[in-house]
Design a binder for these strands. Structure first.
Length: 474
RNA sequence: GUCCCCAUCGUCUAGCGGUUAGGACAUCGGCCUUUCAAGCCGACGACACGGGUUCGAUCCCCGUUGGGGACGCCA
């Protein structure tokens, strides 16, 4: 079986974008499944916008997601000589020509053609001028054979392409001698032996021009697969400003890499009714045939749901390791792992969508000084509960062991002793007293993780509060 | 504007001529219950429109509408 070679070719001009991450994921999953090689190539031909920080961010993002590559990162700028050489040979064979049109002329011509209902493509002014190297400042354009059909069978979109006459003679070398993207990708994909080009659908309409380049080079055309874009609400283009698009941002917001992988995979791809996929599953099931053809809106609610799912899947050690920085941030100091903390995280993970939320919910254990929220205090720390509440404190103080079972019987006994008081009448004030909020895990578990001394201290403080309140409002 | 592409519940999607149009997320309701969750059960909810083709169209063809992409000496 012949092996496939694929590549992910991000331009290092920002962070790893969810669209890019998904493209990388699809390339990776397919390649791993077929036992091919996956190459990482940094498209840094845009010198002005490319930065080393961006490149590092892209690499970091991929690593965090668990997407590994077999070769690279190879920087496109490193093959500048090769690109120059190819342009020269194209010039020699007449497949390309020099163009001395000024930007002003080009602009005017484009505007004029657009105005007359045309397509705004280059009019071929210099096409047959046979300009030599000494023609002065010039660009190099590809001579498109206008009779040709530039078509291919896209693995996602099916039969695609258009008449060569509908596209113009594009520039392949700038007047400063540097190559343009189209030339660079084609040459690099060729040199790297890429068999399958899987990329964003924004390149779909660029493909005919690249096809013409392959033809001019007398090369075999790779297989193309264009993956639809991830779009924002109402089908709009994702905006870096308005929408959460950076993988790093998701990471710092407390999302797990396995949830991101699963979410991204199901955004535009399906495998029957299955919703849960590990990276490993993807290397088994992923296929281009089931990649949809329409743009997909990023559904953050679904990500939340998946993230919680994976939060629940983690074992205690892995859960702690990933939650740790978030816990430290809330505590204001390094939080150590112990049995009690494991217990807490276990209780909290079915109540949290992401780690930021989880750490926030853990606050009442992580800090000594809790703040009691006004609403819940007003509702549950009322004078009417003072008597049974203080009785409860006494019972708890006398408790032999601080376990959920022992606490439960203490609560029940106290209720019974007070006219069969409903459990909630005692549980809610206690909850507010020791967590500062009206919502927490089960009251016995909550008391357990806060610990005996801290719990009792907080309850006494709350009792005092109730007394003050009773005194203030006769 | 020109070219290319897309179109199933609010969202992600299954479907590949005959289905009560399925699942997931979200929403709503119930159960459970000391709160919040989780879990379980249930409800709501879609084939954009108009023509064909066909015994029969969500599915095939054409058009309309809507949306997106590309038209750079960006990638």
């Amino acid at each position: 079986m012949s092996t496939i070679r694929t590549r992910f070719a991000p331009s290092p001009t920002g962070f790893l974008h969810i669209g890019g991450a998904r493209t990388a994921l699809f390339n990776w999953a397919l390649t791993r499944q077929l036992g091919g090689q996956f190459v990482l190539r940094i498209e840094d031909t845009d010198r002005e916008r490319s930065t080393a920080e961006s490149e590092a961010a892209v690499l970091d993002g991929l690593r965090w997601l668990g997407i590994d590559w077999d070769e690279g990162p190879i920087r496109q700028s490193e093959s500048a000589n090769r690109h120059a050489e190819v342009v020269e040979s194209l010039l020699e064979t007449g497949a390309a020509y020099r163009c001395t049109c000024t930007r002003e002329r080009l602009e005017e011509q484009r505007a004029a053609e657009l105005a007359s209902g045309g397509q705004g493509i280059y009019d071929g002014h210099c096409r047959d001028l046979a300009l030599g190297p000494a023609c002065g400042t010039h660009t190099v354009r590809l001579r498109i054979d206008r009779e040709r059909e530039l078509r291919w069978d896209d693995l996602v979109f099916g039969p695609s392409g258009q008449q060569a006459s509908e596209i113009g003679d594009g520039i392949i070398r700038r007047s400063d001698g540097s190559p343009l993207y189209h030339l660079a990708v084609v040459v690099d994909d060729l040199d790297m032996g890429i068999t399958h080009v899987i990329r964003g659908a924004d390149h779909h309409s660029n493909t005919p021009f690249q096809l013409a380049l392959y033809h001019a080079l007398g090369a075999t055309v790779p297989t193309f697969a264009h993956v639809p874009l991830i779009v924002a609400e109402s089908g709009r283009k994702l905006s870096k400003r308005k929408d959460p698009v950076s993988i790093q941002k998701f990471k710092s917001d407390g999302y797990l890499p396995e949830a991101m992988i699963n979410w991204l995979a199901r955004l535009g791809w399906s495998h029957g009714d299955q919703e849960i996929f590990s990276a490993k599953d993807l290397t088994k099931y992923f296929d281009l045939e089931h990649v949809g053809r329409s743009g997909a809106q990023a559904d953050l609610d679904k990500l939340d749901s998946l993230n919680q799912h994976y939060l629940k899947q983690r074992n205690a050690e892995d859960l702690f390791s990933v939650a740790s920085p978030f816990l430290d941030a809330v505590a204001g100091e390094p939080v150590k792992r112990d049995a009690g903390l494991d217990r807490l995280l276990d209780l909290l993970r079915e109540r949290s969508h992401h780690l930021v939320e989880m750490a926030e919910k853990a606050r009442f254990v992580l800090v000594d000084e809790i703040m009691i929220e006004a609403g819940p205090a007003k509702k549950h720390l009322r004078p009417v509960v003072l008597e049974p509440f203080e009785a409860l404190i006494e019972v708890l103080e006398a408790l032999d062991e601080w376990t959920p079972a022992a606490l439960e019987s203490a609560f029940e006994a106290t209720c019974k002793a007070h006219d069969d008081l409903k459990l909630g009448k005692l549980a809610q004030p206690t909850r507010v007293a020791i967590t500062g909020t009206g919502a927490s895990p089960g009251i016995y578990e909550t008391l357990e993780v806060v610990g005996r001394e801290r719990s009792l201290a907080r309850m006494r403080a709350a009792a005092l509060l109730i007394r003050e309140r009773a005194a203030a409002t006769p």
